[in-house]
Simulated scan of single mutants.
Amino acid sequence: MTRREAFAALRQQLRAGGLESPEFEAGCLAEQLFGTAWRLMTPQQLAQPLTPEEDAALHTLARRRLAGEPLQYLLGEWEFYGLPFAVGPGVLIPRQDTETLVECALQATEGILAPSILDLCAGSGCIGIALAHCLPDARVTAVERSQDALAYLHRNIEKNAVQVAVIAGDVLEPELAASIRGADIIVSNPPYLSAADLAALQKEVQAEPRAALDGGEDGLLFYRQMPALWLESLKPGGRLLFEIGMGQEEAVSGFLARAGYTNLEIFPDLAGISRVVSGRRPAGERR
């Protein structure tokens, strides 16, 4: 069997398995196996016969994908904000929706010299690392609890050659929040799926760490607690920016207002869905 024939067979397998983008996924898996982008292969390369090792590896990749393993985990890397991020079991996969949070944070830092940025529930580090890449003078600190995710966070800092400090800790721990002061910006993409959302997840999403998805019974656990906990970690005038799930903007805005934030703003993602809620610590506050 040639590479061209193997690709056609893989694409058909993925289509028969009910995957939404069999052509794209087959191309990703073929590139993973052959080390060259499928669309860039020459006719001579496509006509090469598969080795027994390549044939076995391709069957293994197809079997794992059809069993529900995320494509990103099979590839071991995924792009976010134009940057490469190592991913695998134990860490949440970066998603394009979250790029909206990066854009909003960049806007919030305009005019701030060497901004201090906290990335809470950092996971793979995609948000904080993207901000550190775009703002070389920024002082970025990422906070994450999961040991599995922390391993990917450190790998991704090195992979992207940025300066990001890492703190292993629970963002709902009052002592941790009380120990950090002076942030200009806090960004966070906390777990925000409800119990009903978790019960209805696609098979491949179920392979991602539950702790990175589970926002409690109504999905709002972290939003209830974090605004008050982390208010004094911001400088007066500093901003907290949350990524949110669909339909959570009113509830999250209410939590921010009750915790004392002002100048509340809601930002949509590229699909027009409310994706980021932001609030400001009052500039003249003294506590």
Rank of each mutant, 00 (worst) to 15 (best):
Q32V: 06
V187F: 08
I167R: 01
E265M: 10
I112A: 02
E265P: 06
V140F: 13
G68T: 09
F242P: 00
G238V: 03
P268E: 02
A199H: 13
L120D: 02
G17F: 15
M41G: 12
I112L: 14
R155S: 13
L234Y: 09
M1V: 10
D214G: 10
G125I: 10
G27R: 09
F242L: 01
C134D: 09
P43L: 03
F222P: 00
V164R: 01
L229Y: 07
E232T: 14
A57F: 13
C121S: 12
V252F: 05
Q72D: 13
A251T: 08
Q206I: 09
E232I: 06
I112E: 00
A57Q: 14
L172H: 04
A138E: 09
A62V: 06
G17Q: 10
R11Y: 12
F255G: 07
A177V: 08
S188C: 14
A165P: 12
L131H: 07
Y152R: 06
L172T: 08
F7C: 06
A195V: 15
P136E: 04
T51E: 08
P209M: 04
A122C: 12
F242Q: 00
E20Y: 09
S116F: 14
L231D: 01
V102H: 01
T262G: 13
I266F: 07
L135Q: 03
M246Q: 13
P282H: 13
L131G: 11
R239G: 01
G237K: 07
L83G: 10
S253N: 07
P70R: 06
R280D: 08
T60G: 14
A132F: 04
G35M: 07
L113I: 00
G215I: 01
F255S: 02
V277S: 11
A199R: 13
F24I: 02
L71V: 14
K203S: 13
M41T: 15
I117Q: 04
R65T: 11
E158G: 15
R181E: 10
E158Q: 12
C134S: 12
G123Q: 08
V205D: 00
D148M: 02
E250R: 08
D148N: 10
A283K: 10
A228E: 14
P136H: 03
I167L: 12
G68Q: 05
G18R: 08
R275G: 06
L176P: 02
L221Q: 12
I266Q: 11
H133N: 11
A161C: 10
V162S: 10
V164C: 07
D184L: 02
G272Y: 12
I266V: 15
G215H: 05
E31R: 05
A56N: 06
L201F: 14
V87C: 09
F80T: 00
G238Q: 00
R11H: 15
L241R: 03
G111A: 03
Q13S: 15
P268R: 08
Q32K: 14
Q72V: 08
G260F: 05
A108Y: 04
Q202W: 00
K235Q: 05
L50M: 11
G90W: 02
Q44F: 07
E110R: 09
L118W: 07
L256F: 15
E53G: 08
Q48T: 10
P84V: 06
K159A: 15
A8T: 14
G279A: 04
I127S: 04
F80Y: 05
M226V: 12
V102A: 01
E243T: 05
V276W: 13
G18K: 09
P43A: 03
D218E: 14
A183R: 01
S116I: 11
E69S: 09
C121M: 03
